[in-house]
Each structure stands twice: as C-alpha cells, then as structure tokens.
Design a binder for these strands. Structure first.
Lengths: 132, 132
DNA sequence: TCGTATATTGTTATAATATAACGTTATGTA
DNA sequence: TACATAACGTTATATTATAACAATATACGA
C-alpha cells in the first residue's frame, strides 16, 4: 500500500473544521462541532488528528493541548514548528521565518544528538493586548 | 507579604523528589511516591508543581506532560527553556547553550509581538539509541 | 480479479491529566 | 493585633487521551 495521498472521510471532516477556525481548537470542541457530520466518539477525532499531525496538515500547540491548521505551505511534514502565543488573548500565530528555521534545523550541541524535529513556543503579549 | 524566599513544606517534598529523579516525572507518579510523606491528593502535588515551575525550580516538558528539575543554575525564572528529547528512550536533557538562548531571547519577527518567554523542545535519537 | 496487507472506521469503556470550589491554617508586615 | 496573601486539606469533577475489539475499505501484487 503506498503512502496515503488522499484524506479519508473523517480526516477531511476534521481538517475542514480546523482550517475554518483561525485559532487553535481543543479536541473535544472539535468533537462537539463535527457530531452533526457523524463523528460520535473522541477516538474518531483523535485518530483523525493524529494522522493530520503526522502528515503536517495540523500542528498541536503542546502548551495548550490544542490543534491548529498549518499555515505554512512548505511545512509538508510537521517536523519544524514555531508559534507565538499571546498570554492574554491566547491568539496563536505560526511563525514562518526561514532564518529561525535554518538556525534551529542546524542546531547541534555537545550531546552527540542529532535532532530531526523541533517545536518552539514563544509567549508574550500580542500587539493588541500590549496596548491595552 | 514579600515575595516568597523559602519553599513551603509541600513544595520542598515535591522538589526533593523531582530533583532525585534524573528524568521527567509525571504528576501522578510524583503523587504516588510522596504519599508516604503526607501528600494525599493530586491538587497538593499540582499546586506545588505550579509554584515550582513559576519560580523556575522545575520545568514542564509540555510534549510529555512531565516535570523535571532545572539543571541550569542561572535559570532563576523559567522563561527560556530548551530540551532535547530522545524519541526512543525518552531521555530528556536540558540544553544550556548561551548562543541559542541569546538568539531566541532576542528573536523578533514582523508580528509586532515582543516575546517574554519561550520553550523549545528538540526531538531525535540520543547517542545510545542511535547506535542500536 | 483474487488474495493479502494495511488503513480506516465504529463502538464501549476506561485511563490519565488537571482543576473547581470550599473552608482552614500559616506567614509576613503595617 | 489586624490585615492581606500564601499555603494547606479535602471532596468532587472536568478535561484530555487511549485500550481493546470487531468490522469495513483501500491499494497493489500475483
């Protein structure tokens, strides 16, 4: 069986829903909202999310246990992700900065470990919240 | 009341336990292990962990929902953290690299957001696991 | 087109992680 | 002492995620 090219029914439904949101969504909020489309159980959502994360269509914001659609067209595989997170309004933005990604992808320390993947989360106040 | 200088009883017990482990610990595993010292409920552990994270004595490994003692003496506040995580043996090491921390602390993109904090997690295979 | 392997689905139950809400006790400082 | 804040203890519950099992769908080589 070759590597999957097309998304399955459930995967499409979940991706669709996450793409329409412009903020990270919680798994159970996704579940609630796709129930009218036939996904009844948490596992159906989690399985779709797992796959979508694996192929890079969706990223998980680890510090928030939430999922957001990839906005980064060249992010075919989700192995190098960076986000900014506003600690006031919780707005999350995917950072697409080639210098940063180059720097981190090539980063090596003295541990003898070669990194194949990273996830970076920046926290602070977004423009709006800073000016309040 | 001035800013807390000394740890409370529960905070000491939890920190002590986490420091003795050389790997990240899960909250409920900490709970189980400190029950003989009088902490009976999850909340007692979580409250101590929250405080210890806040003052930088402990870091949370977000992708693993686990807690590890800070090995970085100059990491007084836990606002700039980086870890390497072996995806095979789950060994976690705190990265202490001044170039990296300088680069990330000064990082700015075009979002108008000034970051006050970051957390970076690298994934890969550690030396041992790579040679298997 | 049949056989086989893998991916996906559906379902119920349950595990693992974390917080709400309440009242009490301790501690620092004016 | 009086007040404010921090920490504690306790019960209940919310939130996040996976185990286990059986069925169906899809890709692809023989």
């Amino acid at each position: 069986m070759q590597k999957q090219q097309y998304l399955s029914k459930n995967q499409k439904i979940v991706l669709d829903h996450v793409e329409k949101a412009n903020q990270p969504l919680k798994a159970y909020s996704i579940l609630y909202n796709v129930q009218k489309k036939g996904l009844k159980a948490p596992l159906q959502v989690y399985r779709a999310l797992d796959k979508l994360v694996e192929i890079g269509k969706i990223h998980k914001i680890e510090s928030r246990n939430a999922f957001v659609a990839c906005k980064n067209s060249n992010c075919l595989v989700s192995n190098a992700t960076a986000f900014s997170i506003c600690e006031s309004c919780e707005k999350v933005t995917e950072i697409n900065n080639s210098k940063l990604s180059k720097y981190l992808s090539n980063f090596e320390d003295n541990s003898g470990m070669k990194y194949s993947k990273y996830n970076l989360e920046f926290f602070g106040l977004c423009k709006k919240c800073k000016n309040k």
